[in-house]
Design a protein around this nucleic acid. Structure first.
Lengths: 122, 122
DNA sequence: GTGATATATGAACATATGTTCATATATCAC
DNA sequence: GTGATATATGAACATATGTTCATATATCAC
């Protein structure tokens, strides 16, 4: 991980630095998680995991502005988490990939685990 | 998912609405992912997945301000992703849980998958 | 006790991000 | 062709978020 130049890293830390994945990968990773890190987008993904839906339906489900939904779908599409198929004037969105569901479920497992074992919040 | 009141959701969408997890869970889920959605925090988690480290060492590794690191460690601690053990004047941080590693790895798999199958960016 | 070191934290600030509003584009029914 | 409908998108705006700076607190060596 070449964030600090090697010669600036104390010797004891060199091996830690060397075991870290390349920086570029870490940027992509945080970019990916950032997309999941918004309530509206999570709700959209969740809805799409149940069924493919057009923009208007998603907006109705979440009781949100069509424009807001379109903007967020754009973000999700750029992250390759959803795909579109145009049908007439509608745009039908769906999950792009089963990876999405896996990441999702993994998160769920953590949240649930967290709710049980220990107290709430803080 | 009681975001839109049931009587405002068109009948065809009712079953989708009913299959969605409760809202509160979705908030917790996006909160969790949001914490992973920052480069600094990802780097910290990544470093701690190699070895437990004190604040100063993390700051040296990432070539960042000690204060910035402390602030982010606070966020990570609140999300229960890291734990602290004080030793003298140092605070030794480590991953709280193997779940962290799992979520992490899942993300990696997606990123890698993405890099291969298809073109870069956009 | 003193001075040095490690960490935590509040305030200020700059930047990023999400939503709304207005509007453009495209497709439909007629 | 017209008017209606579905979606996308830029600009403006408000809010959230991350970093820095200054400083408080705690522990160490002496």
């Amino acid at each position: 991980m070449p964030i600090a130049r090697k010669d600036e890293i104390p010797p004891e830390l060199r091996n830690v630095a060397e075991e870290m994945p390349p920086d570029e990968l870490l940027y992509e990773l945080s970019d990916l998680f950032r997309v999941f890190g918004d309530t509206t987008r999570i709700k959209i993904l969740c809805a799409l995991s149940v069924s493919d839906l057009c923009v208007a339906d998603i907006a109705a489900l979440l009781a949100m502005n069509q424009s807001a939904i379109s903007h967020q779908l754009r973000v999700l599409k750029q992250a390759r988490l959803v795909r579109v198929a145009r049908r007439g004037r509608s745009a039908i969105y769906g999950l792009d990939d089963d990876h999405v569901r896996t990441i999702f479920d993994q998160g769920f497992r953590h949240v649930r685990h967290d709710r049980h074992g220990r107290g709430r919040d803080e």
